[in-house]
Every structure is written in C-alpha cells, then in structure tokens.
Nucleic acid binder design. Sequence first.
DNA 1: ACAAAAGTGTTTATTGTACACCCATGC
DNA 2: GCATGGGTGTACAATAAACACTTTTGT
Lengths: 248, 248
Amino acid sequence: MYGYADKVFSRQPHAGMKPEYHREEPLLHHTVDCVILGFHRTELHVLLHRFPYKPYQGHWALLGGFVDSSVSLDEAALQTVRRLTGLDNIYMEQVYTFGNVGRVPTERVITTCYYALIPVEPTLDQLSPEYEATWHPISQVQNLALVYDHPAMLDKAIEQLRHRVRFQPIGFELLPEKFTMTELRQLYESILGRPLDKRNFTKKVQAMDLLEKLDEKQKDTSKRGAFYFRFDPERYQQYLRDGFLFAL
Amino acid sequence: MYGYADKVFSRQPHAGMKPEYHREEPLLHHTVDCVILGFHRTELHVLLHRFPYKPYQGHWALLGGFVDSSVSLDEAALQTVRRLTGLDNIYMEQVYTFGNVGRVPTERVITTCYYALIPVEPTLDQLSPEYEATWHPISQVQNLALVYDHPAMLDKAIEQLRHRVRFQPIGFELLPEKFTMTELRQLYESILGRPLDKRNFTKKVQAMDLLEKLDEKQKDTSKRGAFYFRFDPERYQQYLRDGFLFAL
DNA sequence: ACAAAAGTGTTTATTGTACACCCATGC
DNA sequence: GCATGGGTGTACAATAAACACTTTTGT
C-alpha cells in the first residue's frame, strides 16, 4: 500500500481451488502492527496502548491485529486503526515485515508493520476506551520499554517517514485544515529530528506553490498573530501523484 | 534484513508456550519470493525459472518458497537463493510484503519479496537444473508475462535498488573482483535506467576514495585497454556501515 | 515600554551539469 | 593509417546554507 487505501474487498476465498502443492505447506500466524502517528502541539506523537497479555501486561505497545484469510494486509492495517480511533480513510504505508523466529517469545508470528498518519485532535476524546490508548511524544518513547520488537518497528517507521517527506507532501494528513507556517515547520522539524532555518523553509515551501495564504490570523501563540495557510487540494494531489524533491 | 544475513538459527520453537490468546487465531500460508539480480555484459539481469504448477505451468517466475515456523523470513529467502544457485553469504534486502486476497488466484498466500545481488559468472553452469532457470536482461523482462504479481515485485525491487545505490556501495556484490571503470558505470546506468556522463561519473567515484587502480589492463573490448580497479575492502565496509550520498 | 513571536533578502559557498578532444593500440 | 574505445579538465549555472534585524501588539 502506498497512500490511501485501495478498496480491495474480499471475494469468495478460493473455495475448492486449493491446489495439490499447497495442501501440505506450513501455516503461520500473521499480524499487522500500526505505528499511528499524529502531530500535536509542536511535536510528532505516536499512539500506544497498554498491552493486555502476559508476560508484558501493562507495557506500552503498538496496536496490532491478526490477519485472516478474508482480508488483505492493507485492510487488516486499516481495520486496526479504525478499531482504535474510529477513523476511516486513513493514510497508511507499509514499512517492513518482521519475521525472526524468536521475536515474540511465546509464539512464532510474522508481523507486517505499517505506519498511519492521522490528525490528533479528532481522536482526543473518542479513543476506544477498551485499549487504554494514549498519545506519546516521539522524543519520549525511548524511555517506555515497548514490547517485543516494537522499538525497531517504530524506528523503521520514522525512518521511512523521513524519507517519504522528501518526495511527497504529508501535511494534509497530520495538520488541521488551517495551520501556520510555524506549525508546518515544527512538523517537519519533528519528523526530521533537527531544526530547520525559518527563512529558508518558508522560501522553499512557497516556491512549491502548494499553500494558500488566508486572511485570518491565529493569535494563540503571539500578540502579533500568524497568518493561517491551507493546502491547495489540487496541487497537493498532483504532488502526491508525481512527487517532488523537497530538499530541506 | 539489510545487508548480509544475520545468522539467526532456529531454537526450540515455543514448545508448550503457546498462550491462550493465540490458540484460536487464523493461520495462513506465507512465502518468500526472490528477485535475484546480477550484472552480465553491460546490463543488469534477473534470474527466472519456469513455473512448474498449473495454471501457469511454463511461465517465467521469480523463485520462492514457503516459510515454516522454524526459520526466519530472512533465512527462508537465503535458502531459496542457495537452493537455486548453490551460493551462500549473499547480499539480500527485504523489499515489500504482498498481501492482497486475490493475488494468487488459487490460494490465499502472503508473500514477502526480497532482492538478492549475486555475481553471475559463478552461476552460469551450475544452476540447479531442476528449476530450468536462466538469466534475463532487465530490459527484456516486460515481454515475459511473469506469473501472479511478480511484475510488481520486480518493479518494487528495482525501485528499491535504485534508491539504495545512492546511499551505499553495491559493486562488490555484482562485479568480479577486478573491473574497469566502464563496467562500473554501465552497472549504474543499468540500475538507474539512464545514461551517465563518463567524466562526471569517474570524478565522483574517484572522489569517494573507494577504488584502487591496478596496473593490469583489460584488453577484451578495446585495443588500448582499460585499467582494472578493485574495491578497497575497508573503505567499502565503512561505507556499507555509514553510508554516503552518491548523487549521480 | 517591553516581551514574544512573526516576518522578511542577500551574500557566499558548494555542487551539479554540460561539454570535446587527444590517446593508445591492434588490425 | 585508421577505427575503436579509453581517458581527462574547465566554465557556467543552480542550489543550499548562513545569517540579523524590523514589525506587531497584548500586557
């Protein structure tokens, strides 16, 4: 998957077509785990839940789910996010598949990791309560002792997002409809993990002709106020399709 | 996996540890498919075999294999290459996991795609004959009607190799010990799918201080002869670890 | 009046790109 | 002597990076 979900619905699952040469082949458990990312305040956050099973009960973990034979991997990942957040039509991307034998001590299971980009605010008070899920700033996660190889999953997801950010726009998925230039820059700073020059950043963003400056100002963070911008949806879609090179 | 195989051996496979919450979960077939790449003459080639099962019997396909619960995904991929070529200690990288429901018409199977980089010459007359495998120039493969979603796998593998080539050295895996500057350039041209300026290429490669110029000349392709080079193993390993930026 | 964040251009250094001729040799 | 691929340097353009002061306004 790359971008928004292709709607691939399940069909009659191979009824009676199972060929001879598959009959005797090994069967495995397969799960998806989702690195659900959002931008809140000045930093990227990840949505974690408290792991409910021993021996890691109570530890923080990415949310995941088993894949059964009626859904695609992509759908399974989408369902996981939907189950937790209620959100649909989510931007997701596959990251990597973790398949070492001992990665989950109690069980052989292969896990495909996805990351999802979602807006944080809509989820703040409607996270499905059964999961005890909360948002954590990316910079704090290393202190959290995630279960299994979830730290590696998170690393790989961030690495991939860092790469992606250079070739396609991502703000739409993570920012509210209206946002200030400072917010956009802080988003990129948080993803890339380093400060960016304010003037050069503004220059480059404006050169892409992707933003529309609004008349309205945000006055929360300064007396003077900062102009809001929003994405030009057409240019945004075009860049999603064609890509760009956003050297920061 | 990234680079050479970690030797992860199987251990006692979870005997008696299966937790309650896994007992009832769905089981699936999982395979690995390998895009085995090599550089021959002036072009990148891919090793394909004739698919032995209906309904695609006789079509060209990537070689793959089932994953069972005693081996990691990486090991399964290595075994696949070893089975076909007899080669061990292969450079491999995971590409993507394909998990749509209908991707294999007869069966629900999830497949993780890897690419492997190997030298072609050692394999030329010792390919395991039971597979009817042969090398095909990358530029010709689109005419070949590969089975299932193997065309997409090949595309993704090449795309990833193109990306990789910009950040880490790869010649060691694909070239003989001694090679000419022209051969090295043709390798990069074939991977990137576009011509590269001879002078600029030489300049950039030499600036990396990665090659050692030998006294010996290759005289096959010209009267004048071309100097052989070889990689400086230490610098090569260093670049593999630390990466570089090789803007071509 | 002052604190706090917003906004705005220029200069310099670096890097990428384009380009053409002579060289060495085997036939 | 000529055909074939091998080998080499320079000039120009584009891009990235560094950098500091003025503006606005709520308190």
